[in-house]
């Protein structure tokens, strides 16, 4: 009785919303990671340019992961 669930027509109904919000989390993670690594490299190399490189790299990494997880597989 309990195992028989009427199937919804839109199985993916609310999922895109969650994926969208979650993508925001990934972008923030990429920002944090990129800026963090960039800051370390800047201190090591003595140039602030690494901050920008890290920021862009982190954002790119986030977008790559979002693509791998939610675009490539669907």
């Amino acid at each position: 009785m309990g195992d028989r669930e009427p199937q919804d027509d839109d199985q993916q109904g609310t999922r895109p919303h969650a994926v969208g919000w979650n993508a925001l989390s990934y972008m923030l993670s990429g920002l944090l990671l990129g800026v963090g690594v960039g800051w370390l490299l800047s201190r090591w190399l003595g140039t602030d340019l690494m901050m920008l490189v890290g920021l862009l790299g982190g954002m790119s990494l986030s977008m790559y992961v979002i693509w791998v997880r939610y675009v490539r597989e669907h």
Binding site: S25, Y26, S29, G30, L32, L33, L61, S62, V65
Partner: peptide, 15 residues
């Protein structure tokens, strides 16, 4: 490794 760190930050901080 980069993705692992990214996921770690996502799972434990940004989320």
């Amino acid at each position: 490794p980069l993705i692992f760190f990214l996921e770690l930050i996502t799972y434990f901080v940004t989320r």
